[in-house]
Design a protein around this nucleic acid. Structure first.
Lengths: 240, 240
DNA sequence: GAGTGGTCTAGACCACTTC
DNA sequence: AAGTGGTCTAGACCACTCC
């Protein structure tokens, strides 16, 4: 006798996608609960979760820890090779940017940092941690390292001000070159908690080294982005 | 009476990671079967799979469809803003590159392609599909679009030759600018099958528009990379 | 043919959010 | 207090790979 075939995760994906694409569930809309979806589609919660994770993987939806699943808003365009600040990008694209400084302190460069910043091990560095969001949603964490000898009184400055503007205007530094690295990583437990993301959540990892006219590394920066929040755009002009 | 606490996915992650980091399981090594791991650690297969997926998310391991889980080899460094060909990159970094042409045909530009290539809708384009691997492992799929009017006899050329070299040497084209877009996407069912990846597998999506001296889009390219195979490096020089 | 990963079922408990 | 997502158990069948 014929057995009712299982509802597959792919079918659940289709069901959810059609509602997202039709606009029935707009940006930032909360999806129904996992149990509600599995009841409606006559399937198990495991299958629903599998479908949700696939839509999460390509950035159509995201989750906020234990609060539920939400439709992902449009991604922000971002060119990490430019020194323009995040706030400017976000405003240009019609978003409301938000920055919070989580921590700032003086540290001694360890082996790894010394290599990245081309300084001797033990050199004094200023370390800043910030988180940033758009439209009320946290989208990335940032770890910034600056040579303390180049910015002697920076630690006194208000941390919310744009760093790149400050470096240029206040210290008269000119940027000569930026080296950018982009790869996939996963959030540490502490990072995931700040971004309200699940444990082990995959993220974009972007690191940037900014060099000045003399070839000194004036800024070293590590960013951890929600992967659904970001569209990286880089334009490269070839020399004549 | 005390109940034995559950083995958590995080503990399984730790168990697996320590064996990878210690070198007990080297690059490309096959992990034990999911059932063997769950038996050894006295846990369920679901928990083991959860752990494996977390290590997959940050690129430490990867799976080849239905064949098993493997330790991910070192990532290849890649600068999409340069026109150097993949083969050269791979050889410089000590890998054995591999390219296969999957398809080539003439098409009419649809609305989307016409916009991307700045040509009229219906313009004749040459479409090439290739897959590429290093050390015997497929790492990305590529869809290339070229204006048929600029390369009248290209369809007759051997497809394995480096395209960028050919464009420069044979046609004397000079590259002026490259616009690169990078984001996260997921593989279609057809793409996943070619890369031997699971359904809905997340990937790096890289699209590139290459412009010549006259500002014409001479190449438009879409790449779908296994996310664990890639480390993107871009260097940007600021104008004086 | 044996074993594997891919998928699905039908529960369960906990920590946390929301009301 | 009710409901949610996060996690875990203990099975099952299938399609596929490998031998």
């Amino acid at each position: 006798m014929p057995i009712k075939p299982h509802v597959t995760a792919a079918q659940v994906c289709g069901f959810l996608e059609s509602r997202i694409k039709s606009g029935e569930w707009g940006a930032e809309a909360k999806l129904p609960s996992e149990r509600a979806i599995s009841d409606q589609l006559q399937t198990s919660r495991v299958t629903v979760r599998e479908a949700l994770k696939r839509l999460e993987a390509n950035g159509q939806i995201y989750r906020s820890n234990r609060r539920g699943w939400f439709v992902a808003p449009p991604r922000i365009d971002y060119d990490p090779s430019r020194s323009a600040h995040f706030t400017q990008y976000a405003l240009e694209q019609g978003y409301s940017p938000y920055t919070e400084c989580l921590m700032q302190r003086l540290i001694q460069a360890d082996d790894d940092l010394a290599g990245k910043m081309a300084v001797a091990e033990g050199t004094q560095l200023l370390e800043l941690h910030r988180c940033r969001g758009i439209n009320g949603r946290l989208v990335y964490l940032e770890e910034i390292f600056l040579r303390a000898d180049l910015w002697p009184d920076l630690i006194e400055q208000p941390p919310d001000q744009s760093l790149s503007t400050m470096l240029r205007n206040h210290y008269g530094q000119l940027f000569k070159q930026v080296d950018v690295d982009i790869s996939i990583a996963s959030l540490s437990a502490a990072q995931a908690e700040i971004l309200q993301a699940p444990a082990g959540c995959s993220c974009f990892y972007i690191s940037r080294r900014t060099l000045n006219q003399e070839g000194l590394v004036i800024e070293y920066d590590r960013e951890y982005w929600r992967h659904d929040a970001l569209n990286i755009k880089v334009t490269h002009q070839f020399a004549e």
